[in-house]
Amino acid sequence: MNDQAINMIAQAPPGSSLWRDAWHRLKRNRLALFGLAVLSFFILIALLTPWIAPYGYADQNLDLGASPPSAEHWLGTDVFGRDLLTQIMYGGRISLAVGFVATSVALLIGVTWGAIAGYVGGRVDAAMMRMVDILYALPFMIFIVLLMVVFGRNLILLFLAIGAVEWLTMARIMRSQVQTLRQQEFVEAAISIGLPASTIVRRHLIPNALGPIIVYTTLTIPSVMLLEAFLSFLGLGVQPPQTSWGLLISYGAETMEEYPWLLIFPGLALTLTLFSLNFLGDGLRDALDVRGAGD
């Protein structure tokens, strides 16, 4: 080991200040702040929806039917004459919850799994990654149908089902990152001076692998929101009159020519969320990138 490497280890910032520095850097990134603001706004709306929604989410007006945006209904109404703004607000509660919770589950399992496999290597790695291969290959639909039959219909289960599928790719990415990092001098140095594996993984590997993981996470959240619509199709998801952005979009897609507003507004909500997530994710990635910070 050369002196430079020892210096790098010695200078590796302690956990708390890593995050504090990151926050400082994040505050300078206007786009990331914009993303954070939009997301916070959406979450706030979602929390307050039951009190501020303009209409009841189940209130129908069959004689009105689908109507374009108007003074009474800012975003128009659906085929049942239900207020679309209200639907989007209530749908956001479900979608945001599914998006964040399911992704967190996926993140937790995937990152841990991938980090262990990549770090330990050898037979353990092979066994763990072949497990991932098996899970990739199982027919997802049958799996979901069975879940529903065994456990009945509930939202917690929905989160778990989605998390159980989404972690696989996360694990693969994490593993390949860790594998790459493990070969780098500062990690080899850390190993050779006898730091415990858990410390190395926590302090050196995970923070350094965060970039791609954050990027993939920000991409996973919206696709999870759409996956929820498919699970609802199989009967596992939310039941009418409850709704979600994914469901609103898939219904809207069927009538995009006749009632375009039913697609555009829920689509806009999802797109805005996705962009905000990505700005924030990029900002976080840059903020946490210790080496890049000096540039």
């Binding site: 189940a58 209130d59 129908q60 069959l62 049942f80 149908v145 529903m148 039959v149 219909r153 609802s232 199709f233 199989l234 009967g235 039941q239 009418p240 009159p241």
Partner: peptide, 25 residues
Amino acid sequence: AVALQQMWKDTLNIDITLANQEWKV
């Protein structure tokens, strides 16, 4: 189902919950 659910709510003031299942189930 969604329309009838609301009709029963309006006329009889009773709650009907909906459950969909994939065809074979």
